[in-house]
Write a protein that binds this DNA or RNA. Sequence first.
DNA 1: CCTACCGATCGGTAGG
DNA 2: CCTACCGATCGGTAGG
Lengths: 243, 243
Amino acid sequence: MNARQKHRPPGPDRTHADSPGRPVRRGRAHAPSAADTAPNPERRQEILEIAAKLFAEYGYKATSIREIAERAGMMGGSLYYHIRSKEALFIEIHDRALDAAARRVRAAMASHTAPWARLEAACTEMLEIQLNPESLTLPIMNNFRSVPEAVKAILVRKRDQFEALFRDIVDALPLPAGIDRQIYRILLLRLLNTADTWYHEGRMSRSEIATQILAIFRHETPPESADVPKKPASPARRRRAAA
Amino acid sequence: MNARQKHRPPGPDRTHADSPGRPVRRGRAHAPSAADTAPNPERRQEILEIAAKLFAEYGYKATSIREIAERAGMMGGSLYYHIRSKEALFIEIHDRALDAAARRVRAAMASHTAPWARLEAACTEMLEIQLNPESLTLPIMNNFRSVPEAVKAILVRKRDQFEALFRDIVDALPLPAGIDRQIYRILLLRLLNTADTWYHEGRMSRSEIATQILAIFRHETPPESADVPKKPASPARRRRAAA
DNA sequence: CCTACCGATCGGTAGG
DNA sequence: CCTACCGATCGGTAGG
């Protein structure tokens, strides 16, 4: 995949007419005043998006600072002009992704009142978020495996906070008595959040997939008590952090 | 990220004095006759189990040969007395895990004939496999992110082969017409295979969780055609590898 | 199974 | 934003 950058020349040698393997610069070659300029926020945004894509695809540890830098058209060390550390970079990307996702899901739900309609809207929006390979809102939320333990704690807290959004929706659902709402919510979120790992382009669109998920997760209460929800949304539910 | 192995150092140079910081040995210090002994199969088995646990917990790339070796009580280089390469090690572990899982699921299903009962038995067994932190049958089957591309192809082929087992079960299910069987199977397998990432000890046992999953995924066909399966197991289904 | 090493690559920094 | 580097760590090997 990558096989460039061997470096370690003994001195300022420059005898090579063109060193074979240094990152390809993207215009702005040898920009002279770069060091004097204040950190460009747009440039930083570009970097965050590039990093988000790589983190989402390869995970934390398997994504190198140098790879991110190269795709941004700069040397590895230069990235630290824009970021503080790899860990801080990951946390920032993760936080922004979840904030954006929460905003979008809330907005999608707002236009419906019926419980199942609200759930379907939320699911469709989540799939749109997870499967649209665009900007920061990418599926980083489940790539925790190789993240340092200290960072992981921060991410999990943020994710739990996001998932609370779905607790409200699920609690309002008229589900059959036999179904545990916590399990129901965990399973549904797991499918939505890891959609990129099981969805394959073609055959079905994202909204068709959402419909299919709903077809599986939708359960009508038995006819004899169809309009009396077994367990209305409890107002006391602002608890639990683990799972 | 990519396999290198070109190497071949220029010559026997050996001028450095000493290197600091070596792993703590676990007994059997300086065993003298180790090099003469034939590769011990039991020892190898130990190593496979240790590696399986680490791979399952941290993923391929984030698990180092030296960490595996240290937990096995030897130096990093010594591991190559038992294995050929890290890649080959991972593939072997993965293959064994899937073979063992397939055997167990088949056996669990065999004692039932009714479609839903067979599915429930398969799900319970899968959860048992994925959540019981024991031997080689561990959840490595979804930790592909940081695996080299060439290796990944091998793993995916094996996994698809394993998942065909579930195609038979799902095809035999009397599902409502609106539900797509391929999606149904993919979603169910995703939940089962990643169980370790969402299941948390306590509150519910593994079999209770299996019951909950079944409660969600079980759909009775409408009463007017309840005993006429819409789509019996098709004998021509030995296709598809992607998705 | 160990010692001692190789070349590659990692995150990060100094100084410009 | 680059050059040139650091110490650490990686997978793997030679030779015993």
